[in-house]
Design a protein around this nucleic acid. Structure first.
Lengths: 231, 231
DNA sequence: GAACCGGACGGCACTGAGTTCCCCGACCAC
DNA sequence: GTGGTCGGGGAACTCAGTGCCGTCCGGTTC
């Protein structure tokens, strides 16, 4: 929407993080921030509806991107794949500013108020995914239930990978971590493995398993078999 | 912990809800509440660390119950079953006061601040489940990932059933709703169906499936087969 | 040029949540 | 009695967030 981003907004974010890092979030007042940034107190709240918002300056934009990504088409793809790709949009935002993301992670880990705020943001992502899946699953038995569960699983997997990357101070491969986690979810929920069922392969898969084998091994085996067939 | 519950706490909750319902949450100040309850302002914050807490007076207790439930044993049961049972503890708390729960549901639906607060509470439940599963899955490949995903799925399913019940104004069968939702999750994640693998049944299961069949159907079929075998 | 106007910014005063400090009265021990 | 302390009350404070209004600045219109 806003084409030119006001430099004042960035100045406020920079000033805020400087202070947050050197004396802590709760020990920093909004007055401190605006004084350091050299602007009026009222202007802070023009750009950020609350003190917490300055810690997550780009989530609103990212949420809009995700909503748009899910809104425009994509119905020819597998729904689970689609929401996984949507989740990767969030990762991309984090990965664009690794040092910033790591600093923010350390902040949110320490400050309960920021954790809570982050939860509300994550919840909105999850709702966006769930709403999309509900549309795709409309009519199926337990459609909304499936949608909610898959959305929650995708978000949990994404966060698992993301946090693992953040804990490594941005040293590990963020995409690899999240891809691995999302693949796990996709393996659990995707009906059929391949992107498009190949036409010239056998129509039947036979699985032989020892009784009592863990289900995840069974699923893994089915996946592997299907993958081999579609090669 | 606290054996005798102070009547003052209940008086504050009652006064708060009367005012919240007749003029709204944000239109009610803490001073209004303490005036109606006939106590000092300071006493309110002695019992509730924040204004939001008065809306969820029993969650702290319930969270402690769940933590204790997961802490003491239960390791002979299937982990997924165990966390599903833990989730049912929360449902029980809601079901104990249906009218109160429905009123609170309507409040949290309208007031964003309360939604956020509720999220932080739900998050703590989810973390309790995830920590338990992480212990149970310790050593397995992707143990923490599986733990996080399953915990998220269980919470999502529980909330799906719970909300469905709350939207019915407490008229429907809460347990049935949640049981159905949790069964869905259990079907997705449980390694093997029966409680204990019987010793005198066949050691091998053969599944024949059409290529491209939805994974949930495949899993369902495996489950059904295993159930038949353990009868 | 002057008058006009709309948007960005600053200053101030206000509400209300949450905290700190201190008070009081009750109840108990000695 | 004196000395505890424990549950509660209350004044005063900090700070986030809001409303109102003033100012300044760039561009228009006459």
């Amino acid at each position: 929407m806003t084409v030119a981003k006001p430099p004042m907004r960035d100045a406020l974010v920079a000033a805020a993080f400087r202070l947050f890092l050197e004396r802590g979030y709760e020990q920093t007042t909004v007055d401190d921030i605006v004084t350091l940034a050299g602007v009026g107190r009222r202007s802070f709240f023009r750009y950020f509806p609350s003190k917490e918002d300055v810690v997550f300056p780009d989530h609103e934009r990212c949420l809009a991107d995700m909503t748009e990504f899910l809104a425009r088409g994509g119905d020819e793809h597998d729904p689970v794949t689609r929401v996984c790709d949507a989740a990767r949009l969030v990762l991309r935002m984090y990965a664009e500013n690794p040092t910033f993301s790591v600093q923010r992670y350390r902040l949110t880990k320490k400050v309960p108020g920021l954790r809570t705020y982050e939860l509300s943001v994550v919840w909105r992502y999850e709702r966006a995914l769930a709403e999309y899946l509900r549309r795709r699953f409309a009519g199926r038995p337990d459609g909304t239930l499936r949608a909610d569960v898959i959305a929650a699983a995708v978000v949990a997997a994404h966060n698992n990978g993301l946090r693992s990357w953040l804990r490594s101070d941005g040293e590990s491969d963020a995409s690899a971590e999240v891809d691995h986690a999302l693949a796990h979810v996709q393996r659990t929920f995707t009906p059929g493995a391949g992107p498009e069922p190949a036409q010239d392969v056998e129509d039947v898969v036979v699985l032989v398993s020892r009784r009592g084998a863990p289900m995840w091994r069974v699923v893994q085996e089915i996946e592997a078999t299907l993958d081999r067939r579609t090669d």
